[in-house]
Design a protein around this nucleic acid. Structure first.
Length: 479
RNA sequence: CGAGGUGUGGCGCAGUUGGCAGCGCGCGUGGUUUGGGACCAUGAGGCCGCAGGUUCAAGUCCUGUCACCUCGACCA
């Protein structure tokens, strides 16, 4: 490790200053740039390429589950936003308003969408008449604006990129099924595409989405033990339908309100990727979302045959369906090693005169720095195997990390002490009262992340008040 | 929104009692190099965040303003 350290001076050690380390990676790996627009970032090509892969992974899953993409307007008239009371109250403090068109003051202010529930509702009211029109399974890929006061790249910016799914169903059962299905999709996406394990479960009343009946969440644990709310799926009930008068004629000729869901994952997931997998050398990307899966670094490019062999390698990997990049620039090899480690490229292939003499190349896996000698003729077959193993190690490592940092606690004193001394989550029983939840937040700054699914509360009592417990809850400090 | 911090070539910084705007990295060109961030030579690049003021003279002093960063309260 000491040998490596001196070559990477530009990045702050992770365990010395986590926040600065995070920023160093965002900038150093060229994911984004700060812009001169306050609170907004510029996604650079490498960062955007990751986002494109994330969107592709999610979009495929949405299509596989029967969803269609649409596009709603960027603006919401004030009167439309105000139709659902809880919803407005939740978002009012952080909406941006358009008051002028050209020189003229608008007769009605337009809000820049912070989320699009009301736009979808307005549209659903227009297109839904009969039970035959249901369900409507829509999604959109857009950016939204929330006027945040404190911002950080990817984790909290005033404009961010996301998908928001909005669905309309005939019955509560159908809508609940959809809500949970999309939670499954998110969990599977995080594990299989991002190699990030998540806790999943229901949000408490105080943590749920403004206007929702129930909010489900997937929560990931970052390397510093803090929680990142990584995706949410809401059962909206028929509250929006009543506010917007969205009714359909059922088979029995009765008018009924629809039941709705909404669900979203944002560019914040890139922040999770950094904070779960990154190390002191930089980013570490799981193959599924790595813009470059294999980088080929030729050694001594001026020597006979080196570039030719490197190009052959590139062609055979490309033919095998991999995203591969050959860096034939005149940088020093050592410089390139550091550069692609910073960028988290899963596998580096070195090929030089010595390798060529032996009809081989050297593959290094980014996550554990292990080198494997691969015969040239086996490259197209062996690299996918290495990539698969790398993904499995990343997921396994993150899973172990999280499991080792979930502490079971049964009294308030231990709760406070554990939260102070150990980064991570606490699992503790809770009576369900908002007062007890607030008490924990006041004492520790930790919040309830989610209620444990099938959590066992038999015979246990609330960690705060000692009343009979209703839920087993995961608590943690959150981003 | 509170508290702090920073604005000087692309980036990181220095600039003393006010007196020629500098250094490192990066960048261009030529050459030698190439298995963990090379070296030599030679170049280019600045309205010192912005606006006032004090002064013979302001990067430096005064007033105002803007932007960004970090940490806290609220949020994907």
């Amino acid at each position: 490790m000491s040998k490596i350290e001196k070559f990477v001076e530009s990045i702050t050690p992770r365990d010395e200053d986590f926040a600065r380390w995070y920023t160093d990676i965002c900038l150093g790996a060229e994911l984004c740039s700060y812009s001169n627009v306050r609170g907004c970032i510029i996604l650079r090509p490498y960062g955007y390429a990751i986002w494109e892969l994330i969107t592709a992974e999610l979009d495929r899953r949405f299509k596989d589950t029967g969803h269609e993409n649409v596009m709603m307007p960027l603006f919401i008239p004030e009167s439309m936003l105000q139709k659902e009371k809880d919803h407005v109250e939740g978002f009012a403090p952080e909406v941006a308003w358009v008051t002028h068109g050209g020189d003229e003051r608008l007769t009605e202010r337009l809000c820049v969408r912070p989320t699009s529930e009301v736009l979808f509702c307005d549209h659903f009211a227009d297109i839904i008449q009969s039970w035959r029109d249901l369900p409507k399974l829509y999604n959109q890929w857009v950016s939204v604006v929330r006027w945040e006061k404190t911002t950080r790249p990817f984790l909290r910016t005033r404009e961010f990129f996301w998908q928001e799914g909005h669905t309309a169903h005939a019955t509560e059962e159908d809508a609940m099924e959809e809500t949970l299905l999309m939670l499954d999709v998110y969990e599977e996406f995080y594990r299989e595409a991002l190699a990030i394990p998540v806790l999943r479960g229901l949000k408490s009343e105080s943590e749920k989405f403004a206007g929702a009946v129930k909010t489900y969440t997937v929560e990931a644990m970052m390397h510093d033990g803090k929680a990142l709310q990584s995706g949410t799926s809401h059962y909206l009930g028929d509250g929006f339908a009543k506010a917007f008068n969205i009714q359909y004629t059922d088979k029995d000729n009765q008018l009924r309100h629809i039941h709705q869901t909404s669900w979203g994952v944002s560019s914040r997931s890139i922040g999770g990727l950094i904070m779960v997998h990154g190390d002191d050398e930089g980013l570490v990307l799981p193959p599924a979302v790595a813009p470059i899966q294999v980088v080929i670094i030729p050694i001594a490019t001026h020597k006979e045959g080196v570039l030719e062999e490197a190009m052959k390698l590139k062609d055979s990997l490309k033919a095998a369906g991999l995203r591969v990049f050959l860096d034939d620039s005149d940088r020093m090899p050592g410089w390139k090693f550091s550069e692609y480690e910073m960028k988290g490229v899963p596998i580096r292939l070195e090929i030089g005169p010595r390798d060529i003499a032996n009809n081989q190349c050297v593959a290094m896996s980014r996550d554990n720095r292990e080198k494997t000698i691969v015969p040239l003729e086996d490259v197209a077959k062996e690299i996918p195997v290495l990539l698969e193993a790398l993904h499995a190690r990343m997921l396994g490592r993150a899973e172990t990390f999280m499991k080792e940092r979930i502490y079971d606690v049964d009294n308030l004193e231990d709760f406070v002490k554990t939260m102070e001394e150990n980064p991570g989550f606490i699992r503790a029983a809770w009576c369900g009262s908002a007062d007890c939840e607030a008490k924990i937040k006041e004492l520790t700054t930790a919040t309830s992340r989610c209620l444990e699914e099938d959590g066992d509360t038999d015979g246990s009592v609330c960690v705060v008040c000692g009343e009979r417990a209703q839920h087993s809850v995961f608590w943690g400090k959150a981003y």
